[in-house]
Design a protein around this nucleic acid. Sequence first.
DNA 1: AAAATTACCAACCGCCCGTAT
DNA 2: GATACGGGCGGTTGGTAATTT
Length: 318
Amino acid sequence: MGRIPRISSEDGLTKGAWSALEDEILVDYVKTHGEGKWSNLAKQTGLKRCGKSCRLRWMNYLRPGIKRGNISGDEEELIIRLHKLLGNRWSLIAGRLPGRTDNEIKNYWNSYIAKKARDHQFPSTRSVEITGKKPDIRVDLQGGAALSCGVGPQLQQGKEDVIQLNPDHMKNAALTGPFSGAGLTKPKLEPSKSRAGPLSSTSGEIENTPTNFIMDFSSEEFFNVLDSDFAKLSDVNINELKNTIEGDSGGTLLNPPLSQEITGTINGGFGSSSSTAEGDQPNNNYNMVSSADLFQPLFLDSNDGWQLGDDIDILFSD
DNA sequence: AAAATTACCAACCGCCCGTAT
DNA sequence: GATACGGGCGGTTGGTAATTT
């Protein structure tokens, strides 16, 4: 594996695979001087490597605590979820997996998980069961916020349809579904009348749960969202999201703070069918409220009842 | 057994951002 | 404010190992 060491003819720097001696020099330097000042390393040690190469070697291979290979099922599942939430922010994903590097996760994703997705061993999105007749969905955003996603003329303004969510299946769906990053919470949930279960005995009154969501767009757009990679749908302020996840601990992140409020933007609307005059320009700003339930499944130690391949059942009432 | 193909992954490249001057 | 520089990040390359034909 790897590359044959070679000397760049242009600057005399070595490229390619690192030798044991080079590793030793690098480790000794970091032990003495600490991380950083990578460009000084070559000058002070005579190592014929550029600073970037030194940093990369240290961060991805020599740094203490690096785990190599044997990515567990829990880790894989977490990678999949985080990728759905964060997209190709490998460093952020790696930050949630102790001992794993962004490079390793990136390689793992590109060579293994992506292949699984291609082979349909992992559904990239939840499967959706549709019953009923309504072609359009009309749902209200909480707090009067407008989340207009190119609603077509077929939408009957003011007429409210209801997305009915199977609460068992929708456990943690606010995170794992494509809407998670938008942080849409506290929606109306109408108990399903069509299936037995805990909600079937209720009177149909609105129930607030952290897993609900509400939106306002056509069913076609709705499905586009379901089929889309979240990273392409929204532009969450990652730093704030990260802070929310990490809290003040900056550590294990297994117990994110409750109900912190973060701000984000919906970038260019949802899905391909929505559009703005500016194309990629953000067209909505709104507040997003996260909760422990929202983020809990991001962490390996969470009690997560949501499994890959689980279905979301969505019923249109008539 | 040999050739071709695929999988894996270390390392490089170029861009971007923050900081120092 | 402009510029230079260092560091961080994601995308990509390229070499070896493993597998298939």
